[in-house]
């Protein structure tokens, strides 16, 4: 259960941090505000997941301790969320693919037999709903935009695509969570994800990559070097000044 909650909370923590890196650098003011708000939502969701994880673990670690005092190999996030921002097209494509998966995942978890999990999911799904609405809209506008924006979005899709395979992997932990009535199997989301994806890509005039190769490992703690860099900047302050308070 602890590990399952880390998988949920680490996704939103790492992506929330990545998105916040745009703060003050976005191409236009409205986008800057939007990304900052999305980052805030994701970090807020993290507090609930990691807060519950700390409670379940029972070792006295709270959400902050879990966020700031763990090393890369203890993180259980999907590799997609640690991908660097690169250009705005990559950032938006990563967000869209994540939102599409995240929204379905949360909708499934609303039906969890565990009231705490269902409660957090019901809170988060409302936010995931407008995150998805926004990223879908932007993918369509930019994909079906100028030749330049189209090419960049297709390029971003090709680059991030291999990181979607891991989302639908069912491992022993997923099986245990499924049998305990806590969570449906992630793999069961795949047909819904594919259908929604096809719909948006068609409107965006983008082509789904043929490549079936999937990069995996994040959910088991095997990460890319990028996560280490991200954690170094995210964790620096509380680690350098352990008693720092706002």
């Amino acid at each position: 259960m602890f590990e399952f909650l880390l998988r949920m909370g680490d996704n939103t923590l790492v992506l929330g941090h990545r998105v916040s890196e745009w703060c003050g650098h976005s191409p236009v003011l409205e986008e800057d505000i939007a990304l900052a708000n999305i980052a805030l939502d994701l970090i807020g969701q993290t507090r609930m997941w990691l807060g519950l994880a700390g409670e379940v673990e029972g070792q006295g670690r709270d959400a902050d301790a879990l966020a700031f005092r763990r090393d890369a190999w203890d993180f259980r996030n999907l590799l997609i969320v640690e991908r660097p921002n690169r250009d705005y097209g990559h950032t938006l494509m990563r967000q869209f693919l994540f939102d599409l998966w995240h929204h379905e995942r949360l909708a499934d978890l609303c039906l969890s037999d565990d009231d705490r999990v269902a409660g957090i999911a019901a809170k988060c799904v409302k936010e995931a709903d407008y995150h998805l609405e926004r990223s879908k809209d932007l993918i369509i506008r930019l994909g079906d935009g100028t030749p330049e924006s189209h090419a960049r979005m297709q390029d971003a899709l090709e680059a991030i695509w291999p990181y979607t395979g891991e989302m639908f992997e069912n491992d022993a932990l997923d099986q245990a969570m499924f049998e305990a009535g806590i969570s449906p199997l992630p793999g069961s989301q795949k047909p819904r994800f594919d259908a929604a994806l096809e719909d948006t890509l068609a409107k965006a005039t983008l082509k789904r990559p043929e490549n079936g190769f999937a990069r995996k490992g994040g959910r088991k703690g095997v990460h890319s070097e990028d996560l280490g860099h991200l954690l170094a900047s995210m964790q620096f302050l509380p680690r350098a000044y352990p008693d720092a308070r706002w």
Binding site: N37, L40, D41, L42, Q45, R47, E127
Partner: peptide, 8 residues
């Protein structure tokens, strides 16, 4: 109850 999860 919080309004939005990330509401400061």
């Amino acid at each position: 109850t919080p309004t939005y999860s990330g509401c400061p």
